[in-house]
């Protein structure tokens, strides 16, 4: 049976903990070893299929795959036939012909990894799709939280910013809920989706009220293109109401950590002093990204059968299911 990692919801609590534990061991291996490369995935091929630029995420996956001795093919939309009007399905069939064992896909459309999973035999790993999900980011965030705070159960995590357009927020809410953390979303109402009330998270518009109770504060990037679309009046006002400045950081508990999935808009959602301060896990997040992605690749590809992930999305959905029953 083939398995994929398309959504953080694909992971049960045991799955998620297995990924984190495995990542922890792999991080320890990397720290100890004089030779960083493990033979585990020798002979396997991992394709990085990036329709959207993301040097950081692509490099992280590439390094993870190479540390496990997998062969890596980078297939970026630019300079390939993808930009010449070839469809995702054509690309998928090409990858099939190349015999890839896993496809790591980054795409600007939500759901593209789900589509891809229907068309390829190998495992599909979602490396960020539109405004949908980014499950490995959530895993590395959870890993970082556990590393710094020693637990996830009962942890109070505040996610601040453009929740509406954030795949990081969606995956984090799902995964942290699975792992027993309590998530509060803080954003201007314009940057929260209609329907957020059904998410397993609290919602607040008041950052100052939430900060003192938080064990983790995760600041989301505010993208430039949102500024012209009347989601908020001005960067200055956004920053004043929802930015993590030095004054607000002072209201945090001593051991509260500050996270950011990057890339940051310094001075907008986060003050440089906070981003570079001792609370910040931003550098650790990058390092942990490689370990977590190694764990995911190992658990999906390391054996005859994947140990984690979803298979439900892959088969043809049940079209005979009646919605009027």
């Amino acid at each position: 049976m083939k398995r994929h990692l398309l959504s953080a919801a694909d992971l049960s609590r045991d799955d998620a903990l297995l990924v984190l534990d495995t990542a922890e061991e792999l991080a320890a291996v990397a720290e100890r070893a004089t030779v960083k490369k493990l033979p585990t995935l020798r002979g396997r091929t991992v394709v990085n299929l990036f329709f959207e630029d993301s040097t950081r995420t692509r490099t992280s996956f590439e390094l993870a795959a190479k540390r496990l001795s997998a062969d890596v093919i980078n297939f970026s939309a630019k300079g390939s036939s993808v930009s010449k009007g070839e469809t995702l399905k054509d690309t998928a069939l090409t990858l099939e012909a190349m015999g890839s064992d896993a496809v790591v896909i980054r795409h600007s459309w939500s759901g593209a990894p789900v589509n891809l999973a229907r068309w390829v035999r190998g495992s599909v790993i979602n490396a960020g799709d539109g405004t949908h999900e980014h499950p490995t980011q959530a895993l590395l965030d959870a890993f970082t939280m556990r590393q710094r705070l020693g637990r996830l159960e009962g942890l109070r995590v505040t996610i601040v910013g453009d929740v509406l357009h954030s795949r990081v927020a969606r995956s984090n809410v799902l995964l942290l809920h699975t792992l027993g953390a309590e998530v509060t979303l803080v954003a201007p109402p314009t940057l929260l989706p209609v329907g957020v009330e059904a998410w397993p998270a609290e919602v607040s518009y008041d950052l100052d009220a939430v900060l003192p109770k938080s064990d983790v504060v995760m600041m989301l990037r505010v993208q430039r293109e949102r500024m012209g679309a009347a989601y908020f009046p001005s960067p200055r006002e956004y920053s004043r109401r929802y930015g993590l400045d030095v004054r607000r950081a002072a209201a945090l508990k001593d051991d509260t950590i500050v996270m950011h999935p990057g890339p940051m808009v310094r001075g907008m959602e986060i003050a440089p002093e906070v981003a570079d301060g001792p609370r910040s896990t931003i550098v650790a997040q990058v390092a942990n990204g490689v370990s977590v992605r190694m764990a995911v690749l190992y658990l999906l590809l390391g054996g005859s059968e994947p140990a984690i992930g979803a298979s439900a999305h892959t088969g043809d959905h049940d079209r005979t299911e009646r919605t009027d029953a």
């Binding site: 297995l18 495995t22 999906l300 054996g303 005859s304 059968e305 994947p306 140990a307």
Partner: peptide
Amino acid sequence: RLKSPRALEPT
């Protein structure tokens, strides 16, 4: 390749 991936043991 013959079995499901195993959980790692401590080194």
